[in-house]
Design a protein around this nucleic acid. Sequence first.
RNA 1: UGGGGUGUCGUCAAGUGGUAAGACACAGGUUUUUGGAGCCUGCAUUCGGAGGUUCGAAUCCUCCCACCCCAGCCA
Length: 568
Amino acid sequence: MTTVDIKPPPNFIRNIISEDLKANKNDGRVVTRFPPEPNGYLHIGHAKSICLNFGLAAENNGICNLRFDDTNPTKEEVEYVESIKEDVRWLGFDWGDRLFYASDYFEQLYDYAVQLIKLGKAYVCSLSADEIREYRGTLTEPGKDSPYRTRSVEENLDLFERMRAGEFEDGAHVLRAKIDMASANLNMRDPTIYRIRHEFHHRTGDKWCIYPMYDYTHCLSDAIEGITHSICTLEFEDHRPLYDWVLDTLKTPCHPQQIEFARLNLTYTIMSKRKLLELVEGGHVSGWDDPRMPTLVGMRRRGYTPESIRNLCERVGVAKRDSVVDIALLEYCVREDLNRRAPRVMAVLRPLRVVIDNYPEGQTEELEFPNHPEDPDMGSRKVPFSRVLYIERDDFREDPPKKFFRLAPGREVRLRYAYYITCVGMEKDEKTGEVVELHCTYDPQTRGGWAPDGRKVKATLHWVSAADSLEAEVRLYDHLFAKLNPGEEKDGADFKTHLNPNSLETLKSCRVEPSLADAAPGGRYQFERLGYFCVDSVDSTKEALVFNRTVSLRDTWAKIEKAQKQKA
RNA sequence: UGGGGUGUCGUCAAGUGGUAAGACACAGGUUUUUGGAGCCUGCAUUCGGAGGUUCGAAUCCUCCCACCCCAGCCA
């Protein structure tokens, strides 16, 4: 983990913790936890929580536990447990030996429930689920007591024990906390704390057929682990009285403080696990690791660095107001990171053949390219130059618009780190009129890209040698959704109708420089003038290279061109 | 017309009675063998609204308005 050498910016949770530390609350300890339910893959929203919890612990010499909230066997799977561990590790956090499962506490939780019954604070309720709902009342009307609310402690104890023993069908009974059916807070209207589920649990197997509910489990798990600050999202604010009630009623030796913050939302992105699952199952994406997904596996495959994600999480801040962060900030964060660390490389996505008429046929020369123009420590490499090259189609216009500085008939430009070339002719497809090949001359005096006479050129193009370059597939990604806030359901439309039909463009006949032959899976590069790309870790092979575009470079020309088109 | 929250620049976000940080975005300039990166400049006389307290209010008080969450045997 990176050490924090400058004082991090304040946020309300940091403030609470430093106040607590000042007051010597919890003997100056800070213990947090990241408590995912293993029912799906982690996404960038979870990253915010992970960074917050692990970060807060780290900056205060504290501890952060990784705890799986696995109390609902119908939804949870080991596959998810494994992926979550991997993602947290990848993000750069280490829980050491602090790996826990709520299911580790089932026995203790059961004992606590027995205590609650003995205290007269819990009872077995035999109403059906529907009846419980009816009895609960509404937002504006109080609920009414269950007829089972007055069962004796002995009967409750007996029934609860038999629930555990498996004597009853699913749904026959539940254990409820006895609080207040008239509470304005619905969570306090005798919430269910145990239900019967004859289900196999991924860790406890068939040992249990009753499972504790979240509200009951979470606070006690926190208390058992000695958590000091239990940080969760806003929607749990209403649950805090229940969190406190359970711990107060049971007089647990430790009473963590629940603090709620606003979850991360990003423009053009959906963060709901349910909806992400729907995209996966409906085949709208290739899987949880589709590079367009906001999942950590997806982003990793796309080429995002953990550093950039952590940086985003620090930059967005922590507060209590619902907000939607501009995805441009995320893109800024990756570019900032990759600009520093990604070696530069030449790749042509949409090749246009260029013949250098005055360059000797059959000749090839090796040019020396720096791997990073601002970082000599990254070394250099040799790149072959020859008579037939490819340049980017976009870099040539037969009829160049205003402010287009690149190649055009009669125009001279620089080939990066190579020579000045001048376009002297072109060949077109007879049928379509499409330019299929350019004829240029080069100035042998400009080797390396400098003209001895000092003449200037307005553009520098990237290129590859036709014969020496490698073919590659390149996948260009755009936002998965075309709508700024696809999660918003005000328009009543299914969120999938907002899917961006152009979120993936696959280019099959790209050409990349020969040094990429040895590119390792996951390797990240800047394709000069285009963007940051990584070797796809799933589909790329030595024989058939596949690259994913992580993010494009900022493109001033595209902006100008767009403005010009809007004017016209 | 119940309860719990939240309202500061286009988007995030500091600010906790002493006269509106910062970031992204945007716009201009500078520089440049990536129209990249860098660098510089600009960008809230005003803090949801209206009153009030005060020498002084985004910060305190009153009323109002808007938005979010809650009626799982999900988490």
